[in-house]
């Protein structure tokens, strides 16, 4: 018996629909009361600590950056904001977290060899892109398993 094709039109359309649903299905907003969140971030040896900062959408965020060794900077992807801190001298960055998603904090002042890889994360609310993408990957994986099963039946 000739095995079924890995991709045939019928199932491709089905996959397309599944992908479209995953990509565009509306998700409920995670509602929270806006707060002012102050986060102290220490910058030292090519790392921000804490390396991951989580806030909710609508929060007013105050990032207090303190360098612990040499002059570091902090550039926030997505918000296009930056601030510089000399060791021991705390610098503040205040902004309204109105964009959801995961944004990288990057050192913006050359601080040594690994400076380009000094990266932290600011997570605002739920990372929809990540969850949708993971779901899509899972669906692709399941489709693969299923097409194997279909062939060996």
């Amino acid at each position: 018996m000739k095995p079924a094709a890995v991709l045939d039109k019928k199932y491709l359309i089905l996959m397309g629909i599944a992908m479209a649903v995953i990509a565009f299905a509306p998700l409920p907003d995670r509602r929270t009361e806006p707060e002012t969140v102050t986060v102290q971030i220490q910058a030292e040896s090519y790392a921000f600590s804490p390396g991951i900062v989580e806030v909710e959408k609508g929060d007013t965020v105050v990032l207090e950056l303190t360098s612990m060794d040499v002059v570091h900077g902090l550039y926030l992807d997505g918000y296009d904001l930056s601030v510089t801190s000399d060791p021991g001298q705390t610098a503040r960055l205040t902004f309204l977290a109105d964009e959801t998603g995961s944004f990288r904090l990057r050192c913006s002042t050359t601080c040594g060899a690994l400076h380009p890889f000094m990266i932290g994360q600011l997570k605002v609310g739920r990372n929809d892109l990540l969850w949708r993408a993971l779901a899509a990957m899972l669906v692709i994986g399941i489709y693969g398993v299923w097409s194997v099963r279909r062939a060996s039946d």
Binding site: T66, S67, M68, D69, P87, G88, Q89, T90
Partner: peptide
């Protein structure tokens, strides 16, 4: 301040 601390309490980053 890097040694003596911003507040002068001797708790600077170094």
């Amino acid at each position: 301040a890097a040694c003596h601390g911003v507040s002068g309490q001797g708790d600077g980053v170094f």
